[in-house]
Amino acid sequence: MQKTITIIEDEPFIIEALTFLLQREGYLVKSVSDGALAVDFIIETRPNLVILDIMLPNVGGMKILEDIRATESISTLPVLMLTAKGQKKDRRAAEDAGASQFMTKPFENAALIKNVKEMLFS
């Protein structure tokens, strides 16, 4: 069965590149760029994995992650956090908030795909 991945990211060209990459691997890809709509979108679309940018307009990635973990129906969803701030504190905060995996921008396409596959497999 085809797996679904939701991208929550505000940069349209990054969404386009990620969508192409993931579709090329056979995944169904959906995206939302407004942080305020993210949690409802996830509840509605029930993806197998979420790729979540930490810096989003309106509602930040950390808050979205906390809301995902606090919402029973999606609380166990694997979440891959992306950030342009590759600081240790961000990684720690994301892990504390329940991020399954963490990658910093700019990332290698191959590394991202590898992480996605591993997360979906586990």
Binding site: E11, I14, A17, F20, L21, A84, K105, P106, E108
Partner: peptide, 18 residues
């Protein structure tokens, strides 16, 4: 500004790699 710069670079890197 650094955040923007890294976002720009991410797009360019990922797109050119594709």
């Amino acid at each position: 500004a650094m955040h923007l710069l890294l976002s720009n670079i991410t797009t360019i890197r990922s797109t050119s790699d594709i």
